[in-house]
Computed example of a mutant assay.
Amino acid sequence: MSRKESLQKLRVTLIRRRDALRKALAGDLSLLSELHQQRTGDALDAAADTVQDELNSQLVEVESQELVEIEEAIAKFQQGNFGDCEDCGKPIPLNRLRAIPYASDCIECRRKAESDSDGSAAAVPWNRIFDMADADKVEG
């Protein structure tokens, strides 16, 4: 299968995911609104409702961000530059696009961006997390 055919399959996947997210978000938002109107119960119920509202809110935020990224990827199809890294301009490997169809950068540029970022995520050696946990047990 050619790269062009693979990219077209990814376009279909993106459109399906976009439509599913739109439906999910519409349902989540209407459910949240409906639940706010039906408040009953004691303080424990109110606390549980608040926790659930926070979780739902975070889920809506994550889904909304994914929807934005998917819509940007679909727009790139229309512009003719879907599958190209925004930083270096090279084609993004198909395996990366299959894993994250809305990826906008290649792995090398993503790694560089993460290492250049000021975030603490780059400071954690995730591939060594179990080794660190075992070392804590030995030292403790």
Rank of each mutant, 00 (worst) to 15 (best):
V68Y: 03
P91T: 02
F82H: 05
Q58M: 12
G80M: 04
G119R: 14
K23A: 01
G119W: 14
V60F: 01
A122H: 12
Q79M: 09
S57W: 03
D19C: 07
Q38P: 08
N127K: 14
H36M: 06
Q65T: 08
S57V: 01
T40K: 13
E69L: 10
S57D: 02
L67E: 01
N95W: 14
E61H: 09
R96M: 05
R39D: 11
A121E: 15
R11H: 01
R16W: 03
Q78M: 08
R96A: 08
R18K: 05
Q78F: 10
E71C: 00
Y102V: 10
G41Y: 08
G41K: 06
G80Y: 11
R18P: 00
A26K: 07
L97I: 07
S33T: 09
T50E: 11
D53S: 11
E71R: 00
N56E: 13
R18C: 04
C88L: 11
E63P: 05
R3P: 00
R18W: 07
S120M: 15
S64M: 00
N56L: 00
D134T: 12
A46K: 04
N127W: 13
I15R: 08
I74T: 04
A123L: 15
L59P: 05
L32W: 06
A113I: 10
E139R: 05
L94F: 09
D42T: 06
P101I: 09
R98S: 15
G140L: 03
V51G: 11
K137D: 07
L35K: 03
S6R: 11
P91L: 12
R111K: 14
K4A: 05
G41F: 02
R111V: 13
E139F: 04
Y102S: 00
D84G: 10
V138S: 05
G27Y: 01
S30A: 08
S2D: 04
A75N: 04
Q8E: 00
C85L: 02
S115P: 09
V124T: 14
L14G: 03
Q65A: 11
I74S: 09
N56W: 02
G27C: 05
Q37P: 06
V60T: 04
E69Y: 09
M1Q: 06
A133E: 13
E61I: 05
L94A: 10
L29F: 00
K9A: 08
S117K: 07
C106N: 09
K9C: 02
